[in-house]
Measured scan of single mutants.
Amino acid sequence: MTVLPKDIPGDSLKVTVGTANGKPGDTVTVPVTFADVAKMKNVGTCNFYLGYDASLLEVVSVDAGPIVKNAAVNFSSSASNGTISFLFLDNTITDELITADGVFANIKFKLKSVTAKTTTPVTFKDGGAFGDGTMSKIASVTKTNGSVTIDP
């Protein structure tokens, strides 16, 4: 049996954390987006972790974005102690894959008090994996961190 590389060099799934701005007490939304989904033969499963400074940001909610089908079954998240974990699994293993680019999740943060303008990162942590529509590992994932700026 011969195994051929399935990824064209330079191609990767792009996962990007967005940015937001606000004043202390505001609730802002930071999107997590996927790009080049079709090039990577869709997404059938993924789990990953984001870190944030809990002294500056309070997670209000984490909701599935419009590219997630049947989110009540296929999407899960949790947030505590400065870490947000995400889990997606197409429970049907074929019919509810992520097949389009767009917003995977929206994180709502309540901004805490600061004395001066502060930009705090929302960054990928170690761990996690992504699988394509056949549940094979997506070897190349380009992750881009985001941030939230609090301006009193």
Rank of each mutant, 00 (worst) to 15 (best):
P152M: 15
L56D: 12
P5M: 06
N91A: 01
D151N: 15
T149G: 15
I138T: 05
K117T: 04
I107A: 02
S136A: 02
V15T: 09
I93Y: 01
V3L: 12
P24T: 11
T149Y: 15
K143M: 04
G102M: 15
P9Q: 08
S113V: 06
T142W: 15
V148T: 06
Y49E: 02
T29M: 14
D95Y: 06
V28K: 13
G146D: 06
I98C: 08
T118Y: 08
T33K: 13
F75H: 10
V3D: 12
N91C: 15
G10V: 10
S85R: 01
D26G: 11
S76I: 02
I107Y: 02
V17G: 12
T33L: 12
T16K: 14
D126T: 15
N47L: 01
I93G: 00
G18C: 14
T142G: 03
I84M: 03
A71T: 06
K41G: 11
N42L: 08
I150R: 14
L87E: 02
A116H: 06
P66H: 10
T119M: 12
L50N: 09
V73A: 05
K125T: 02
T99I: 08
D36F: 14
V148R: 00
K117D: 05
G10P: 13
T16P: 12
V141K: 02
T142L: 08
D63K: 10
V114I: 08
T2A: 13
V3Y: 07
I107V: 07
P9L: 11
L87P: 03
T144M: 04
G146I: 04
F104W: 05
V73G: 02
A100F: 04
I150H: 15
L89H: 02
V148Y: 05
I8G: 15
D11A: 10
Y52Q: 10
M135K: 03
V28L: 09
I138L: 02
T19R: 13
S85Y: 05
D151F: 15
G82C: 15
S85L: 00
T134Y: 04
I107T: 03
K117V: 04
E58M: 14
G22Y: 08
T123R: 14
T94R: 02
K23H: 09
D95V: 03
L56Q: 10
G22P: 09
P5Y: 11
F34G: 08
K6S: 13
T19H: 11
D101M: 01
N106H: 08
L57A: 08
G131Y: 00
D126M: 15
